[in-house]
Write a protein that binds this DNA or RNA. Structure first.
Length: 495
RNA sequence: GUCCCCAUCGUCUAGUCAGGUCCAGGACACUGGGUUUUCAUCCCAGCAACGCCGGUUCGAAUCCGACUGGGGACGCCA
């Protein structure tokens, strides 16, 4: 049994998007499952659109997602001479020919065909040009492209797709496609095949938008006397209007980097993405990497396109709700040490990180993260809604301010009173803090909730949060006392 | 327009290949309830789909055929 070899060949014309990430993921999963290799190949032959920045973005995106590769990155441009050599080989063997038709001529024919409502395929003007004519035109310096000579046979050619089944097409319906530009640069269809042959690729998993390319590439494999790899065309990811998702059209919402910045847990995104077009056949939705590698199979890839349920302008869900729920699930259930480590960069970005969180305050840091993680959905929430736990500079939100503080004029005195009692407490712990607050409420003949919720807002700036007395312990007596005494200024700002 | 592919809740999907166990299961979302002196987590319940028509069959989500709908490809892009 030969080793399985897969590849992920992005073109560096923009950041890594979730569709590409999903493709990479499937290839990676299958390589891991079969004990094979994943090759990363940057297809940068489109010099005009390729950028160094994109290359870095793709590499970073893959690393963040945890998709590692075994070989590469290779750069397609490094193999240009090989591509040219193969084109010349096809030419020499009579499997390809030079075509002198100009772009303008072809455009005219194409337009004419459209007027007559017929399809235009290359009409073969130069297909059987006499060698002397070719030599003459070349001598005259006429530019030419190289076209592949599709065998003039009746019948059909096809391949067995692991997802879609047998795919076939009539030879007569395939036009003689261009494999080398008039500039002498080989085109994708050829380069891709030549590279895959050289890299000994055994399985090609890619989007079903490549289906028609595959037919032509099978022709190329045959002409080059190379074995045809196994193809698996995965369904496309569409937007809610059923259009293919693209960087141009959808912008950052489809960029992997966006999810990184938003505070997604990489594996949560991967897990979600994998399930867009594949399922294990049972009700399992959450997988560890190992479990997923173990369960993944080409045969269970769906045929139906799936919709990435992102609703523009939805205030509650900034992206697909299910993706968010996956992130929440992992945020709540992953080992707290892992979460704590992932939160670090987000606190750093907000200037809230303290080196002691990695040292003697590590236990405090970890338990605080643990205390508040249930209510958050993104890693970024810790440095945002969770700010009050790490800094004295936090904003008090308007809604809770009105509801929990301003509504009760008395809190202006009550909270400082509570602060005094907390300060005087011999021992400031869960029980004593609660008892003190409740005693005060009883004395003042008010509901404990008034004190508690007022305190919550003053101490954390938030409407809701964990159990109040747990919060007190996390924030610490000193800070609590100061914040409670500062209640008066909240009435001032509000007016 | 031509060729190709696809078709189950709003969304992701199980079930289709080997027809009965499916008046269709799970998840997200949504609604209601329980827990919580907050909010969330968590738990329980509810809502919600086999595109249409015909055929085969004792029996069809499942097989066959049309129709309809959706998508993709038709570049000297990748």
């Amino acid at each position: 049994m030969t080793e399985t070899r897969l590849r992920f060949p992005p073109s560096p014309t923009g950041y890594l998007h979730i569709g590409g990430a999903r493709t990479a993921l499937y290839n990676w999963l299958y390589a891991k499952k079969t004990g094979g290799k994943l090759i990363l190949r940057i297809e940068d032959t489109d010099a005009e659109r390729s950028t160094q920045e994109s290359i870095q973005g793709i590499l970073d995106g893959m690393k963040w997602l945890g998709i590692d590769w075994d070989e590469g990155p290779y750069f397609q441009t490094e193999f240009e001479s090989e591509h040219e050599a193969m084109a010349n080989k096809l030419l020499a063997e009579g499997k390809a020919y030079k075509c002198f038709c100009t772009k303008e001529e072809l455009d005219i024919k194409r337009e004419a065909a459209q007027k007559n409502k017929t399809t235009y395929g290359y009409d073969g003007t130069c297909r059987d040009l006499d060698a002397s004519v070719v030599a003459e035109k070349e001598a005259a310096g006429l530019p030419f492209v190289i076209r592949f000579k599709v065998p003039a046979i009746d019948g059909e050619i096809g391949y067995d797709d692991k997802v879609l089944g047998r795919i076939k097409a009539q030879y007569s319906e395939i036009e003689d496609f261009v494999i080398v530009r008039s500039t002498g640069k080989p085109l994708y269809l050829l380069c891709n095949v030549v590279d895959d042959i050289r890299d000994r690729i055994t399985h090609i998993i890619r989007g079903s938008d490549h289906m028609t390319n595959t037919i032509r590439q099978v022709l190329l494999y045959n002409a080059l006397d190379a074995p045809v790899p196994v193809f698996a065309h995965m369904p496309l990811t569409l937007d809610t209007k059923k259009a293919k998702i693209s960087k141009r059209k959808h912008g950052e919402i489809v960029a992997v980097q966006f999810y990184q910045e938003k505070g997604f847990i990489p594996w949560a995104l991967s897990n979600f993405l994998v399930l867009l077009g594949w399922s294990p056949g049972n009700d399992t939705e959450f997988f560890s990497k190992e479990e997923l590698i173990d369960t993944f199979s080409l045969e269970r890839i769906n045929k139906t396109n799936s919709i990435f349920n992102y609703q523009k302008g939805n205030a509650k869900f900034f992206t697909d709700p299910k993706a968010i729920s996956f992130n929440e699930h992992y945020l709540r259930t992953m080992p707290i040490e892992e979460i704590a480590a992932m939160v670090k960069p987000f606190l750093e970005a907000e200037g809230l990180w303290d080196s002691s969180y990695d040292g003697d305050k590590k236990e405090w840091y970890t338990s605080t993260i643990d205390l508040i993680r249930d209510r958050f959905q993104m890693l970024s929430d810790f440095g945002d809604r969770g700010r009050a736990y790490f800094s004295d500079e936090f904003t008090v939100e308007q809604k809770p301010l009105k509801k929990n503080v301003l509504k009760h004029e008395g809190l202006k005195e009550w909270l400082p009173m509570l602060a005094d009692r907390y300060e005087a407490l011999e021992e400031f712990n869960l029980e004593s803090a609660e008892q003190t607050a409740r005693d005060l409420a009883t004395e003042l003949e008010i509901k404990p909730g008034v004190i508690i919720n007022g305190m919550r807002t003053v101490v954390t700036g938030q409407l809701a949060g964990p159990s109040m007395f747990d919060i007190l312990m996390a924030i610490g007596r000193e800070r609590v006392v100061t914040r409670l005494r500062g209640v008066a200024k909240l009435y001032e700002i509000a007016v």
